[in-house]
Design a protein around this nucleic acid. Structure first.
Ligand SMILES: [Zn+2]
Ligand SMILES: [Zn+2]
Ligand SMILES: [Zn+2]
Ligand SMILES: [Zn+2]
Lengths: 164, 164
DNA sequence: GGGGGTATGTTATAAAATAACAATAGGGGG
DNA sequence: CCCCCTATTGTTATTTTATAACATACCCCC
């Protein structure tokens, strides 16, 4: 598949392991920052970590209900607000959906690659592209604050296929 | 036409003039491409061109109704589909809203600057940044098709203010 | 054990988008 | 001119996404 360095989502990997690692990281980060990763918030994060697809708030809601938790939209949206504002998840604007952050260990600006065929979502750090975008904005007199970069296309596995 | 400075939306300009120019351009482009810029579609484009803010579909709907046209959501969405797929308007994913294209004369990928204070929206060509994004995606094994770049921040006029 | 802040639970509603089908308008061939 | 075909518009109903408003429960500190 691709390679292990920049981005592991489109690669084969031990997904249970990556989920557990992410949860451990989130718990540690919350302890360090004095944030409360309550059971509700933790469960929503786990659900996001179960796949590398983006989930809509109502998909998450349905899972919570399937697990027997009574749940209503505001509960999910509040958990997602927490996760997004503290960097444990991201919102995908094109999809009205959410995905767990793949690089929560460091502060970063994300760029998303969204497969139009299998709907997997990969997050890569924006890095220098973010700086370039800020520079372009500055040249136009605009004080940039938060950039969104989301690219639709085909993931490695879906490129051969006739689109499935 | 516009001007050679990259972006005139955050500058003072004769807005009636720029609207008329854009409408003329759209009519010519439709004639050339054998597309039908029907009265409905033209009116929606004019409404988008009346300001440099992004309008939600239901804002447009309200205007059409205020003008006496009976109108329902599908009508507006269909007109917007036409305008967006033929390059006369763009959808702003972060805002669930639409804006007339500021550079309809040439095929381009847009980048949007969205003022969080006055809600004006400026479109700049993505140009080399688009190529860089594609290159990054390619390096990750991803076949990029359509990139979305939308930057929130403060426009020149709103930077001094206490946010108003 | 009380008080204040934070989080969750619940009801209702708003906002954005689409499905499905009916009616109409235009345009070319007979 | 009339018919047929297609594209467009009109209409009704519904789905999907998100938030407002308020009640209850929890937790830490005193
Ligand atoms: Zn991330
Ligand atoms: Zn794929
Ligand atoms: Zn444009
Ligand atoms: Zn502004």
């Amino acid at each position: 598949m691709a390679q292990e360095i920049p981005n592991n989502i489109f690669c084969q990997h031990d997904h249970r392991g990556c989920r557990a690692t992410a949860m451990r990281g989130a718990r540690a980060a919350c302890r360090a920052a004095n944030l409360r990763l309550t059971p509700m918030r933790a469960r929503v994060l786990e659900i996001l970590l179960e796949s590398h697809k983006a989930l809509g708030a109502y998909d998450i809601l349905a899972r919570l209900r399937a697990e027997g938790r009574s749940s209503q939209p505001p509960i999910v949206y509040r958990a997602l607000d927490f996760l997004v504002s503290n960097g444990f998840a991201h919102r995908l604007e094109r999809l009205n959906a959410f995905a767990a952050c793949a690089h929560a260990e460091d502060r970063h600006q994300p760029m998303f690659l969204i497969c139009e065929s299998c709907h997997q979502v990969a997050e890569a750090p924006l890095d220098r592209l973010g700086q370039d975008i800020f520079a372009r904005a500055t040249k136009l007199g605009f004080q940039a604050r938060s950039p969104v970069v989301e690219v639709s296309g085909l993931c490695p596995a879906c490129q051969g296929d006739g689109e499935q």
